[in-house]
């Protein structure tokens, strides 16, 4: 059994149609798992389901063997699951440091040492610590979003398109950071549009189409799979 897993999840938004159908995803500690697929496939929705932001009709979610299907999103955060949404993933009207402090909201006691760790990981944030996040560049903002999510020292980190809208160089940097985080024994689940690069650093991957698992395998297998190549990796 994997460290964090969603099994046969089916559900959608409110009373609308099912967006994900019997979708299963799992990730172990120290592993990077990518979720790929066309726009509107339900990748973000699957992540929201794992965090409890949408109600499932069926399926279950467990972390470390404990069933958390019935827990609220906040309680799942307490279980060590951190999520960086695709949009609006920072507090734009607050400073960099305040964003990190908010990430540590659930932590008791002093967290200055964790902030220092984040600054070591993302030196640019230390430089801009007192600047409003709304005034940072897109790439810097993604680092703030990642930093905020790391403040609770999560055991599972879910990233929805962490490299959206950043230049190739910054993208490589962000991926480097993500690999560093993985080495601290965190289970990382990410949705990515830059499929090739994502698979390159991923241990495993899933390809989702219309809310269902279509292909899955190790990063290498998916990269070399002709069907995946032709339809999702652009030849």
């Amino acid at each position: 059994m994997a460290f964090f897993e969603g099994v046969k999840m089916t559900g959608g938004y409110g009373t609308g149609p099912d967006i994900i159908n019997s979708c299963s995803i799992n990730v172990n500690r120290g592993e990077i798992v990518s979720i790929l697929g066309p726009n509107g496939a339900g990748k973000s929705t699957a992540m929201k389901a794992l965090l409890g932001l949408i109600n499932l009709k069926s399926g279950s979610i467990a972390i470390n063997g404990k069933d958390i299907s019935k827990l609220s999103p906040q309680d799942r955060v307490r279980e060590g699951i951190s999520f960086v949404p695709q949009t609006k993933n920072v507090f734009a009207g607050m400073s960099v440091e305040e964003n990190l402090e908010m990430g540590a909201y659930l932590r008791e006691g002093d967290y200055q040492n964790i902030i220092d760790e984040i600054y070591e990981l993302f030196p640019i944030l230390k430089e801009k610590r007192n600047q409003l996040v709304g005034e940072l560049s897109g790439g810097q903002r993604q680092q703030v979003a990642l930093g905020r999510a790391l403040m609770i020292k999560p055991s599972v980190l879910m990233l929805d398109e962490p490299t959206a809208g950043v230049s190739p160089i910054v993208m490589d940097e962000l991926f480097d950071h993500i690999i560093k985080v993985k080495r601290t024994n965190v289970a990382i689940l990410m949705v990515e549009q830059n499929a090739k690069q994502a698979l390159n650093i991923s241990d495993r991957g899933y390809v989702l189409v219309t809310g269902e698992n279509r292909y899955s395998g190790t990063g290498k297998e998916l990269l070399n799979d002709p069907r995946v190549r032709s339809s999702f990796l652009g030849g």
Partner: peptide
């Protein structure tokens, strides 16, 4: 302030 700025993210941060 965080809640006022971005309610969803505030909830995700455990506020």
């Amino acid at each position: 302030r965080a809640y006022s700025d971005n309610e969803d993210l505030a909830l995700l941060s455990g506020i």
